[in-house]
Design a protein around this nucleic acid. Structure first.
Lengths: 343, 343
DNA sequence: AGCGATACGACAATCCATGTCGCTGGTCAC
DNA sequence: GTGACCAGCGACATGGATTGTCGTATCGCT
């Protein structure tokens, strides 16, 4: 777009080219990229831009330990180009709250500069209204919040790069049979973040089948020298649908029929199970009849079981059986416990 | 920071001052803000900056229907100042996937330009590796994904501004007893996003007590002419803890004691219930003993019930009772159903 | 030691950003 | 309608900032 020598926009382009802390970029590389983008400029000018102009106005750091100097931004620098507005800032705050329970801290931390910017922006409002926003906004996560497994930032970077830039990984993996840390070579094919655990889907060593590796059990990771082996036609959606994740029990949806209490009916009318669910009042009670096509997976079953006596599942039959058997077991076990140690 | 007349940085400051589409800012306002920030500059220069410089390089639009012209960015313009890196882009993609199930589309949509930027950046990688990232990354939400209630963008903006900038709202609210749309004045005190439903906490009309208003049931909203009434000392955390949300049953944590199956034990060792939970193997079985301080709320109880026969709760007793009673009801009801229509 | 690459200071030429002025076109008040 | 006012715009002269060049210094590699 901007071809000729247009100083201010060259500066902007530069700012967009320089990465944040752990990464860095050499002066010469910057020169190339500028040329690519049509800025025909001398190296001397670039040096001046960086040291005398940008570095005075931004947290721009120069690493002069290597000869073509390397440049990078302070770890927590961030700048929202179109200014934030109240609605966006609020969205960011909610997002941060939710993310804390969903992604490992190191992963969510990647967006920290943005969240910080949003908070600062909201603080700027306090002058006018006395809003005290931080006391006024909360996100309550869906379902029981388990704590995401910790995991370090560098590891996340290495894994992300390996997966998306097509590299093989050398790792030490703490296998499920505790204690054993095994070194292996992984050929990443996909990544699934489920609940609070993030899994890398990869082929190990010379095997051709895909296994799951929980990121927080990877102890050390570095790029392998050997090239990545790709699985011919790997499609993550197909893979998950095929049940590989222990999620879906059958690839097809099932027809859920159930009677639901007024409270649950109300909940479902507000946040439907699916876009086409059908709720119809029953003649002789305040309960309602629910019909919906839902995925045949553990999640849905859990949700139904969590609702307990507020929902009565009529179909599919394997869920009825499961719920019934489950209730029986609970009673049996608790009766036994009471018998041993009556309160 | 940047005081004197330093053209390129004035441009940057300008870019930071101009909002995205639905909002706009007048040339004169911009001039004031620039002066505030130490840029002593003539109005003529500002006009030139906008029309002849910035508008040529950015999707900057001028609304010349009003006399002090108004300026704004294209709806979906976004610019990541420190360049994205692979790890951050991946984090954004995951965030988007999760958010789709947590926030109403209009709310999550506020971050769309950022997500789009991340996707584009990842697409740029495809040249080198053949990664096809979009087939390789998925987020699977925690718990059953209910669909967020729809809600329009403008409404979200008005509500966000009212809450954070301290304004009262004039709304038409669809009350829970269906069909009735009642006009009322709301004095927003807080906002809670729970599961997929977002609630505004506010005092209505002249009342002094706080009620919840589901955003998606607000039909029309505009700022009220009357000033906002503030509740003296409103603290959302206290409010939620006090059980106002039907969540917590008692303000204190309870001590959960339970026996858990090997699968659940494994799950909990990876994603703990709380930071201090304690898992100890039992002598004569492969089950484990769980001890943890957890909040006494419906969420936790649901989670326990969802685990069904894989977990045996020993304490607190009111949960044991609840679970036991629940199981009994399920069995009773299903027995009755079988009796009526035996399969 | 020598070569190549990069950083940096100095300097002159040029380019461009700036304030000023005057005109235009719109809005508002009377 | 009309006059006052305000913002936008074109033109222009000027002064300051940006640019390429050159020479020198420093580092790393062979």
């Amino acid at each position: 777009m901007a071809d000729s020598r247009d100083t201010p926009f060259r500066y902007l382009t530069l700012l967009q080219l320089i990465p944040r802390h752990p990464h860095k970029i050499a002066t010469t590389t910057l020169l190339e990229k500028l040329n690519e983008r049509g800025y025909r400029i001398d190296m001397r000018s670039l040096q001046r831009d960086l040291r005398d102009k940008l570095a005075l106005h931004f947290p721009l750091v120069c690493d002069d330990s290597e000869r073509p100097y390397r440049w990078y931004f302070d770890r927590d620098f961030h700048c929202n180009l179109p200014a934030l507005d109240t609605a966006s800032a609020l969205t960011l705050v909610l997002t941060e709250e939710y993310l804390k329970g969903l992604l490992p801290p190191a992963v969510a931390g990647r967006l920290d500069p943005q969240f910080r910017a949003a908070r600062q922006w909201l603080n700027g409002l306090e002058g006018n209204g006395i809003s005290q926003w931080s006391r006024r906004v909360r996100a309550i996560p869906n379902g029981k919040a388990l704590l995401p497994a910790p995991l370090n930032d560098e590891l996340w970077q290495v894994v992300a790069q390996a997966l998306l830039e097509g590299k093989a990984l050398e790792v030490r993996y703490l296998s499920r049979s505790r204690g054993e840390e095994k070194p292996m070579t992984l050929h990443p094919q996909g990544l699934v973040s489920r609940h609070s655990v993030t899994y890398l889907l990869a082929m190990a060593n010379d095997y051709d089948d895909i296994r799951h590796f929980a990121l927080h059990r990877i102890r050390a990771a570095s790029f392998a020298s050997q090239p990545l082996r790709q699985m011919a036609a790997f499609d993550l959606d197909d893979y998950i649908k095929a049940g590989a994740f222990g999620y879906r029990q059958s690839p097809d949806d099932v027809t859920l029929r159930a009677r639901v209490s007024p409270q649950v009916a109300w909940l479902l009318s507000e946040t439907p199970l699916t876009r086409e669910q059908c709720l119809t009042p029953e003649p002789d009670s305040d309960w309602q009849r629910l019909d919906a096509q839902v995925p045949d997976d553990q999640q849905t079953l859990w949700w139904l079981m969590g609702m307990g006596a507020n929902i009565e599942v009529l179909a599919p039959s394997h869920w009825c059986d499961e719920i019934y058997r489950n209730a029986q077991q609970v009673i049996q076990r608790m009766d036994a416990a009471y018998a041993v140690a009556p309160s």
